[in-house]
Design a protein around this nucleic acid. Structure first.
Lengths: 235, 235
DNA sequence: ACCTGAACACCGTTCAAGT
DNA sequence: ACCTGAACACCGTTCAAGT
């Protein structure tokens, strides 16, 4: 009897195109909310409303919010990373991975925040492996591969996250130019005795291009890796 | 009349060694709570209780929690950074700064989290300037100084934060060794086709020393910086 | 000017009750 | 087995009222 009623309800749902609740659907809806409203917008109440149910129902499928966020990270990373196309050389491949992560976090600013606050082992592993394979292809001595991949991963993720936090400013917008101009002015107004370096660096800020600067950082690390290989070039 | 009463109350307070509330005292108390109980322990109620007042009183001195956390970061960074001793060479000085930040975040794990979530410009500026001066001393071409300092800062902060998040594991504890052993076992159990690099890197994990690995990363970046200077050594 | 603490508008999470 | 939604135990923040 109960079975029949459950079936009836399921049928009713599918007729209305309201699929049954599932972990996948919940995570999917969470990602949509995160992308649209940011981290502050993701509450169990908002999520339940969107899924036309009560907040308690979600807990049948997901233990808590932390697990929900980790699952959201895993899905986005698993969907986005394979889209990064193959390249002819390890160096170009690493540029591709770096830009891929950069754009991924730019498109999902909450992802960068979550990736450093509470890194999903699964998501981090995907990125680490991708980077590591190219490090291997660069013929880095085995002993030095772990360090090389860690430094690259650390820089790529933290700098991409920072860029995303600056507000989806991948394409130089007037806002961003204005912001950099203001920052440069602030730096130039610093006490020359206390902040000689920063004050001087203000010049570079005025011709700053987030994306180019990011890749210059990657290249600097690649130069360091190259030095350990013996100065050989790998373009 | 009111003035006299206020004075009487102030006198009573100082007799009881209850100094008047002030921004400084509030921030100081917040740091003590953060160090003792972590970020979750810092609530306006807990802070008010510790200061023997109501939560509303705090808002007279501090606009909101975000400002409180930024102020806490500024104080700790301003107190800790000058303790880093001078060194003979830029390379050694950068090691000193790197380890100084590493230990600072290890002692205050909430600081690392806050420094990446909502970076205090003041605190970041202190660190950036410190690093930048040594980059300058390395005779890095002016155009490349900004990138060099950014990469170093990004790596030093994010890796130190990661270490701190791992749980004050600076001194190799049995816990940490056990954890690394388990992680290595997990990595070795990965699908060799999907994760060849990570699986192979599991070996390195077993002889992993957090502190040494961190410095190896700094040296890798320094090698990259050195390459741009023309391969000259700066020990 | 500065402090008090009840009250407001939220959270994540639980759980008895339903189907 | 799975869903419901009221209720619990918190938050940050505000504000009328005090001194």
């Amino acid at each position: 009897m109960l079975g029949a009623m459950a079936k009836a309800k399921a049928k009713q749902r599918s007729e209305r195109r309201e699929e049954a609740l599932s972990r996948e659907r919940i995570v999917e809806a969470a990602i949509e909310i995160l992308d649209a409203q940011g981290e502050a917008g993701l509450t169990f109440r908002a999520l339940a409303t969107r899924l036309a149910t009560g907040p308690g129902a979600l807990y049948w499928h997901i233990s808590n919010k932390e697990e929900l966020l980790v699952a959201a990270c895993d899905v986005v990373v698993a969907n986005t990373l394979p889209e990064i196309s193959a390249r002819a050389t390890p160096r170009k491949a690493l540029h591709g991975i770096a830009l891929g992560v950069f754009e991924m976090l730019d498109a999902h600013p909450w992802l960068g925040a979550e990736l450093v606050r509470n890194p999903s082992p699964t998501a981090m592993l995907q990125i680490f492996e991708r980077i590591g394979r190219q490090v291997q292809a660069l013929k880095v001595p085995e002993r030095a591969q772990f360090t090389a991949a860690t430094v690259l991963g650390s820089y790529i993720i933290s700098e991409s996250r920072q860029n995303a936090a600056n507000g989806r400013l991948y394409n130089p917008s007037p806002d961003r130019t204005e912001f950099l101009e203001q920052l440069a002015a602030q730096w130039q107004a610093l006490d020359p005795d206390a902040f000689p370096f920063t004050r001087n660096a203000a010049k570079q800020l005025r011709e700053h291009d987030d994306r180019a600067e990011f890749l210059a950082g990657v290249d600097l690390i690649l130069a360091g890796i190259g030095a350990s290989v013996g100065g050989a070039r790998h373009d």
